[in-house]
Design a protein around this nucleic acid. Structure first.
Lengths: 196, 196, 196, 196
DNA sequence: AATGAATGAGCGTTCATTCAT
DNA sequence: GATGAATGAACGCTCATTCAT
């Protein structure tokens, strides 16, 4: 029972993932999803309340891990203040880690969530990253420009996802992320005109 | 007669714009749009053939101007090769100009066009910008990394839209764009490790 | 006023006729009809209550004439009993006469009236003709078969309309109708096995 | 499961048949059809792709059989040339056979198909019959008049359908068809003035 | 627990008719 | 009287969700 239940639940989640990848949240069809999962349409509703909750279930783990990651990076910076590059590296490698466990899920919530409760995932993540960047750069010094920082965070986050969805070789991903880190954060204080 | 017609057409376009802003192309409802415009559902169809054509009408001008801009920047770089900053400045100020005329429309086509004919607008724009960047940076020198360049183009374009949708004061926009240009393109060759 | 009214009324009727010819009653569109008539859509409703009444107005004259024709042929046969051929000739030439005055209208009510009040026009006409045939053939003699007679009437009536809508030359029409009369009514008693 | 499915499919087809009989293809409404079938509107679309395909499903068998019949009669006449009566008898008995299997369906496609893919069914059938008549009558002899022959074919075909829809007793149908054959084809050469 | 047929609200769109000017 | 823009009920069809088995 329990075993079987779990197996079906997994099949549904896998099919849902594929469906969301192809059609996005709004365009996903329950019937097609059921067919993919080799499960009756109605049976899906024994495992999940509705389409939205399937999406939640898919997103959940990645969401949790990403949140933990940001929180960690916050803790890290308390001890090891002042080096934005190491923070960025930590976030990047953290996201990579999450990606290695929940890659497709992450891409779905990032790029295919329009119409769902999580359609502002990328925005939220960006905001968290921006907060971390601001904390690092302007801890003691003056007031940085929120929009500029948000924009950098956005480019950084978006860049991570572009790398992740373009490349599959893990070494190549790491190399590209490193080059992106350099591009984004080398001499960043100078380029931003941070005095402190 | 003629006056009234134009007024209604404008009301419909305004309502459609608001509807698309809130719900995106696919989620937009003709009945709600009609209600917003204080117009009968069927009357919309006297002014526009269907939902898609309303979207087109909203998007059109921005689309045209952006295309012209990219083309211009290509011409410009032929005469004035080698300075990526001036190209970037040209694109940025061009997009600013388009935005000052068609701001909300530009944001809609950029971020709310999923399901419409123009759903890949941002991707297309990014690709064009990436091509321009590659042309400037690697004209004579070695082969740059496509993904890295694409990612920079994406961050740059996305950044422009973030500025535009966050800020309304035109002077402030200009200042921020300048700072973003510095952030993205100062010593870019160095940060990318371009040898040429 | 009155003159102008009549001219517009005529324009509407002409446009309606063309519209019905092309699209049938159900497929006809009031807007297109108005455009054809170079009249505002709403103005049509000052002259006619609705689509159905326009159709009625078009059909009316032909209807009246055809009814009169059948009635005449009834009178005729009272005086001049026993010759079905002369009756048929009378009906044929009568329909030709009506056709020469209201040709297009007749074809419309015969073949394009589906969905209107007059969609059974052909059936009704056929029934009247069948009654006349029966009166002639079986006045004193035995009981003829209703279905067979109806079927002959139908073929005869349908044949008339085929000729009318295929051919425009009036002499050729007359010739063909004569040949059809021969085909249908020569030795009809014999072919039907009428004893009387 | 399977049984129920078939039962519903049958209910839908029966309801559709009734709906088409009463309102014709164009006037038929899916909601009314669903109500007749005691089925939800959407459920119809589990069984048939759309209105047109329901019509096709109803018409199909009759269509196929009629086409086969005409083809057969063509083969027959190659072997047994010169006797139009036997050809007519073959066609008549063939149509009777089709009618005995798909009576209402045949009447629907013949008289209620306006707006559908099959709206010219009767015209097509008539044309095929006319061709057969011409082949028989004018094989070696002179040119017959196309309109006259078409008109006879039309009367004959129309007559068949009148008999079929008026009468239910099979023996009576046969008798009437025989009488119609006599009426239409006895001494036909003479009545048409065929010299050969 | 599992099925997949059934439901029906809701979509974009059409068009006869009405109404403000 | 004339205009044509405006109305809104109704259409064919879709699909998330429910239900009988």
């Amino acid at each position: 029972m329990q075993y079987q239940k779990e197996e079906i639940r997994a099949r549904i989640l896998e099919a849902a993932l594929a469906e969301f990848e192809q059609h996005g949240f709004a365009g996903a069809q329950m019937r097609r999803m059921a067919r993919r999962a080799r499960v009756a349409t109605g049976n899906i509703y024994r495992y999940f309340k509705n389409k939205e909750e399937i999406f939640d279930a898919i997103v959940q783990a990645g969401y949790r891990d990403i949140s933990a990651l940001i929180f960690e990076s916050h803790q890290l910076s308390k001890q090891n203040r002042g080096d934005i590059r190491s923070i960025a590296r930590h976030i990047a490698s953290g996201i990579m880690g999450v990606y290695s466990r929940h890659g497709r899920q992450l891409l779905v919530v990032a790029n295919k969530s329009s119409g769902s409760r999580h359609e502002d995932f990328l925005e939220t993540l960006t905001t968290m990253v921006a907060r971390r960047i601001r904390e690092e750069l302007y801890s003691g010094a003056g007031e940085g420009d929120d929009v500029l920082i948000h924009l950098i965070a956005s480019g950084f986050v978006e860049g991570l996802f572009i790398i992740l969805r373009s490349i599959s070789d893990i070494q190549r991903i790491e190399e590209l992320i490193n080059r992106m880190l350099i591009f984004y954060f080398q001499d960043i204080e100078c380029r931003l005109g941070v005095t402190g």
